[in-house]
Structure formats: C-alpha cells, structure tokens
C-alpha cells in the first residue's frame, strides 16, 4: 500500500518537476533570443548569431525548432556579408515556415544579390508554399472524402453526383501528383555552398583536379559522400563533381 502510494507520488512530482524544467527551459530560451535581438540591434552580429545558433541547437535537442531563429541567423550572416551562410539559414527557416513572407522576401533578396534567377511560374510558387507533411495531411483528408463519395455513388447514382465526382477526381489526381513529387523531392539532399570553392574531379586529395569554380550561395544536389567529399550536381549548369565537405552545408534540420 505504502509502495503504491509513493510510486504515485513520485510520478506526480516527476511530472510537475519535468513541467517546471520545461517552463524554465522555455523562459531561458526566450531570454536568450531577447538578448540576441538586443545584440543584433547593437550591431554585434557575430555574437547575436552565436546565441541564436545555441538556441536553435538547444531546441533541436529538445525535439523542437523555431523558424524565426533561423531567419534571424540568416540576417546576422547577411550583415557579416556571408551570403552563403545567410542563404543556408534562410533555406532552413523556409523548411519550417514556407509561407512566411519575411523569409521569402529575404531569401529572394539574397538570391538577387547573388545574381540568381528568382522568378517562378505561379504553379511552382504555390508548390513551394507547402511542406510535404502538409500535403500528406490534405491528401489523406481528400482521399477519405473522395472514396467515401465513390462508395455512396455506387448505391445512389444521382445526376449531381457525377459533377461532384469529377471535381473530386481532378483534385485527388493533382494532389497525388504533388504528393509523389514532394515525396521524391524529400528524398533528395540539397546543400548550400558557404564559401567560394572549386568542384573537383575525384574524391581523392592526391588526384583532386579542380574543374570549375563555384560561387558561395549556390544550391547543389548532393548525390553521395566519400570521406571528406560530397559528390554534387548543379542542375542549372549540368555539372557534376566532388566538393569538400567543409565548403557546403546540407539543408536539413
């Protein structure tokens, strides 16, 4: 009886304590972000970015993330004139919050500064606005409605049902195409070149022949890795080669 009583009490206290620790962690995080904001306002961008990065790492360790923190890190790097890093952090922020206007504005601004093409057709603009997870939930919902409707239609074949069925079929088909495309995209690994460097012909220091230069801020597709090198592909230039790992940063949370 006593044992059960203590077990219950320990559980309650542990829950309360873990809640207190979490609240304390949140308070601490908020205070750190605030202090980094102040440092940024004072023009201390290096220090501000270090604190933001620490906050981002702490949050990730806790299974959380915050688009605003990555966005602010991007701003710090932009102020330090490290455009490659800035783009990398804006891309991370966009992974979390793809429809955020400030993130998209700064990302576009930095791409224009780097001299990249930023115009996209309307479909691609909307396509980029949604995360794979979001499409997944929407498709699941539409999926259920679509098939339930088809089942109902089997038994009650009315004229109006045909129209609704056609509309639902089109929506469902488009969503399935987007879903597959997004899924395939999610399997790919992209990276940002953080420093100007050169693409090599092989992943061997001894036989590393530099083939073509690559500017900072370039987005590359990572194909594979070997020791200190990544095999990369530049879709816009149709160039493939090897690049040192410390010259690029993988866009992954």
């Amino acid at each position: 009886m006593n044992y059960k009583k203590y077990k219950k009490l320990t559980l309650i206290v542990s829950l309360l304590l873990s809640n207190a620790i979490y609240c304390s962690f949140l308070e601490h995080t908020n205070a750190e972000i605030k202090s980094a904001n102040e440092l940024y306002a004072q023009g201390k961008f290096v220090l501000a970015s270090e604190i933001y990065k620490k906050v981002a790492n702490d949050l990730l360790t806790n299974g959380q993330y915050c688009a605003e923190v990555y966005y602010n890190i991007g701003n710090c790097y932009y102020r330090e004139n490290k455009l490659g890093y800035a783009r990398y952090y804006y891309e991370l922020a966009k992974l979390i919050s793809p429809r955020d206007k400030d993130i998209n504005f700064n990302l576009k601004f930095i791409l224009q500064t780097l001299g990249y093409e930023t115009s996209k057709n309307i479909f691609l603009q909307y396509y980029d606005m949604f995360k794979f997870e979001e499409i997944n939930y929407v498709l699941f919902f539409v999926n259920i409605i679509f098939f339930v409707f088809l089942i109902i239609k089997m038994f009650y074949n009315e004229k109006n049902f045909k129209k609704i069925s056609n509309i639902l079929s089109v929506i469902f088909f488009i969503l399935v195409v987007i879903y597959i495309s997004k899924y395939k995209e999610s399997l790919k690994t992209y990276a940002i070149v953080i420093e100007p460097t050169e693409i090599g012909s092989s992943p061997d220091e001894n036989f590393y022949t530099k083939t073509s230069p690559i500017t900072e801020g370039n987005k590359v597709l990572v194909l594979s890795e070997k020791e200190n090198f990544y095999a990369i592909y530049l879709p816009q230039d149709n160039v493939q080669g090897w690049i040192k790992k410390d010259k690029i940063k993988i866009i992954k949370l």
């Binding site: 949050l59 959380q64 915050c66 688009a67 701003n75 504005f105 700064n106």
Partner: peptide, 12 residues
C-alpha cells in the same frame, strides 16, 4: 533585407 523577427513561435 527585412529586419529580424522579434517574436517567435517554437514548434515540435
């Protein structure tokens, strides 16, 4: 570029 974000939202 646009200014840093002063408010933030932590998501799981």
């Amino acid at each position: 570029i646009r200014y840093i974000k002063l408010s933030h939202k932590i998501v799981n």
